[in-house]
C-alpha cells in the first residue's frame, strides 16, 4: 500500500478505506498531551504523598503519613472538642441538676441517643415504647420508681422482679374471678386478693409498692400482654405462674441486667436523664 499511496505527501498511515477515507498520523491536540502528562505526574506525586506502592508486606507509607484510621480519629476528636465544654460541666453535676438546666438537658438528650440505641433500645425500643415483656419507659407507670435517681440506680444495679406462682393455691375458677376484679380496676372486690396474700406485695389498695417493685394493679397498664393475647389471659398467666419463680417452668422472665460495669457513671447519669425525658419522669 505504501508504495502506491493515492494521497502522497499528506502524512497518512497508509490505511485507506472506501477509496478516500484514510488515517492520518497527526499529533494529538496539545491540551490532550498536557492532560496526559499531568495525569502521569499526578500519579507519581500521589504515590509519594499517600500510601501506594506494595513493596514488602506493607505498602509505602507516603510522606504525608495519611491513613484512613487517622482521619477517622481526627473526626472523633473534632466531635469530642465540640462536646468538651458541655461534658466538662456535666461531670460534676447530678442527674437532677442536669434536668434543672434546660440547655444541658437538651444537650444530654441529643448526645446520649446513640448510647441508648446501643444498650437499651433492643428491649425497650428506640423511643422507650417497650414491648411484650419489656416495660414502657415513656409512661408514668414505674415498677421501682420514676425519679431520676431511681432510674439511675435501676440502670446501674439492674432489677429483678419476684412473684411466686399461685397455680398451686388458686383453682382455675378462682383465678378467673381474681383476673376479672383486677382488670376491672378494683382488685379488692375479690376476697381472694386479701386471703391469698396478694396484698403483701401489691398493697391494701392494689397499687403496688415501688420498694419491692410490685406492680400497680389498678392503672390498666400491663407489661406482659403479647400480641394477639387478651389482657385477661395475660394477667391470669402471670398469677398462675408468677414472675422469676424458679419452681415454675412457665414463669415469666423479667430481668433488667446491671449496666454498672458496662457503662461509666457519667454515661449512666446521662441515660437516666434521657429516660426521664421520655415523658414519664417523676
Amino acid at each position: 500500500m505504501a508504495d502506491n499511496n493515492p494521497f502522497p505527501g499528506e502524512n497518512n498511515t497508509g490505511h485507506i478505506w472506501d477509496d478516500n477515507i484514510r488515517e492520518l498520523a497527526n499529533p494529538p491536540p496539545r491540551w490532550w498531551m498536557i492532560a496526559f502528562w499531568a495525569s502521569i505526574i499526578f500519579f507519581f506525586g500521589y504515590g509519594v504523598l499517600y500510601p501506594m506502592y506494595p513493596i514488602g508486606q506493607k505498602p509505602t507509607e507516603g510522606v504525608l503519613g495519611w491513613t484512613q484510621i487517622k482521619e477517622y480519629q481526627e473526626g472523633l476528636d473534632e466531635v469530642a472538642a465540640v462536646r468538651a465544654p458541655f461534658e466538662n460541666q456535666l461531670k460534676d453535676m447530678s442527674a437532677k441538676d442536669i434536668l434543672a438546666n434546660p440547655g444541658l438537658a437538651d444537650y444530654t438528650v441529643a448526645s446520649v441517643k446513640v448510647l441508648f440505641g446501643d444498650n437499651c433500645a433492643p428491649c425497650h425500643g428506640g423511643g422507650g415504647q417497650g414491648g411484650p415483656d419489656y416495660p414502657v419507659l415513656a409512661d408514668d407507670d414505674w415498677l421501682f420508681g420514676g425519679t431520676v435517681e431511681t432510674i439511675e440506680q435501676t440502670i446501674t444495679m439492674g432489677r429483678k422482679g419476684i412473684m411466686t406462682a399461685h397455680g398451686k393455691i388458686l383453682s382455675d375458677a378462682e383465678a378467673d374471678k381474681l383476673v376479672d376484679a383486677i382488670v376491672a380496676g378494683d382488685p379488692m372486690s375479690d376476697p381472694n386478693f386479701l386471703q391469698k396474700g396478694c396484698i403483701a406485695c401489691h398493697g391494701m389498695d392494689g397499687k403496688g409498692m415501688q420498694m419491692l417493685g410490685s406492680a400497680n394493679l389498678t392503672d390498666g397498664i400491663y407489661r406482659f400482654v403479647r400480641g394477639g393475647q387478651s389482657t385477661k389471659d395475660s394477667v391470669k398467666q402471670t398469677i398462675l405462674h408468677g414472675v422469676n419463680d424458679v419452681t415454675d417452668p412457665q414463669t415469666r422472665e423479667a430481668v433488667m441486667p446491671s449496666f454498672g460495669e458496662r457503662l461509666s457513671k457519667d454515661e449512666i447519669k446521662k441515660l437516666a436523664v434521657y429516660v426521664y425525658k421520655f415523658g414519664g419522669g417523676q
Binding site: 414502657v136 415513656a138 409512661d139 407507670d141 390498666g220 397498664i221
Partner: peptide, 18 residues
C-alpha cells in the same frame, strides 16, 4: 409528632402524645 411510641397510656387513664 413523635413516632416511637405514637401514644402512651398513663397510670391515671390519660393518653399522652409527644
Amino acid at each position: 409528632h413523635a413516632r416511637q411510641p405514637l401514644f402512651v397510656l398513663l397510670s391515671n387513664g390519660s393518653i399522652q402524645n409527644k
